[in-house]
């Protein structure tokens, strides 16, 4: 972690409520834990002692001073989960991963933690792995959940998954179709748009499958970078949508054939999207 990063984060939080806690949360969000150097740099940046910073970092449960695994597995031990056997589930995960709660596996694949209550009490015992909730978990399902996580819970088989379906779109200004039957992505006609990034114009082909995030681009766009999208026909800037629900970046609106609007996030790597079939106000 560079000290510039820390000073930028410290500066952004100056005068905001939450202060130090907000700073530590942002560092942890980025690195998955609080690296020792970062704590030192924060102390220097906000003009407080390292003891103070360390004190706050160790007071709250959500901070970790140790690097965490690729997958985070949280077992809920709220009262409702407890009376339905949450503790046994936590043990079973511990056995399957060969770690105690709070620890990370040797290969840095999994971190196991227990949490006080995730607020999904009606469905206990609850386990959250990489942001995916598993309800009414029984001991015998533990291995299956871990296996799913290893294979990536966000991965979907675009050709067979019923939840994936093609969406045909057109430009919100000239209404010209943006579909490109000559260039296939995911075996379907792609959505073809012009992108301007770092002063260069080039084509971007997006999968038309709702639920697939596959993209083919003529030039590399670095992760987290924002690009501007244009209609290849009328050259209108595809803008004026809402801000991304995930990351806050501007979204790119397109008209859906059949009715409604689809918006996709303009940030490379962000999966934020919104398919709005109402077509009404807003």
């Amino acid at each position: 972690m560079s000290s510039e990063d820390v000073s930028r984060i410290v500066e952004e939080h100056a005068g905001k409520p939450g202060g130090l806690i907000g700073i530590l949360q942002e560092i942890q969000a980025r690195y998955g834990y609080l690296p020792p150097d970062a704590l030192g740099a924060v102390a220097e940046g906000i003009g407080r002692s390292l003891t103070d910073v360390y004190g706050v970092a160790t007071f709250f449960r959500s901070f970790s001073l140790k690097p965490r695994g690729k997958h985070l597995c949280s077992v809920c031990l709220g009262t409702a989960c407890h009376v339905r056997g949450g503790a046994v589930i936590a043990e079973e995960f511990g056995r399957a991963l060969n770690v105690a709660p709070g620890e990370t596996t040797g290969d840095r694949d999994f971190t196991l933690e227990t949490v006080n209550c995730l607020g999904a009490c009606a469905l206990g015992p609850i386990v959250v792995v990489d942001g995916h909730y598993f309800s009414n978990v029984s001991p015998v399902r533990v291995k299956e959940i871990l296996e799913k996580a290893r294979n990536g819970l966000d991965n979907v088989e675009v050709t067979t998954d019923q939840r994936i379906f093609p969406v045909e779109v057109s430009c919100p200004r000239c209404n010209h179709s943006l579909m490109d039957p000559a260039r296939l992505v995911d075996g379907q006609p792609s959505i073809s748009v012009t992108v301007v990034f770092a002063g260069e114009h080039f084509r971007l082909h997006l999968s038309c499958l709702y639920g697939s995030y596959n993209v083919e681009s003529e030039r590399e766009i670095p992760r987290d970078a924002l690009a501007d999208f244009f209609c290849p026909h009328c050259h209108a800037h595809l803008t004026g949508g809402s801000n991304c629900l995930e990351c806050g970046a501007p979204m790119v609106p397109m008209i859906v054939r059949g009715g409604g609007i689809v918006q996709i996030c303009s940030r490379r790597g962000c999966r934020g999207h919104l398919l709005d079939l109402s077509g009404g106000m807003q």
Binding site: L118, A120, Q162, R163, F165, Y210, V256, L277, S278, G279
Partner: peptide, 30 residues
């Protein structure tokens, strides 16, 4: 959160898929 943990997101997807596939945008609101 409870709904999503139980599979509500899948239902939303399927509802949208069906509404588009059968051109029901003016006949059904979601």
């Amino acid at each position: 959160t409870c709904g999503q943990a139980s599979g509500a997101n899948d239902l939303i997807r399927i509802a949208k898929r069906e509404i588009l596939a059968h051109e029901l945008v003016t006949k059904i609101q979601l």
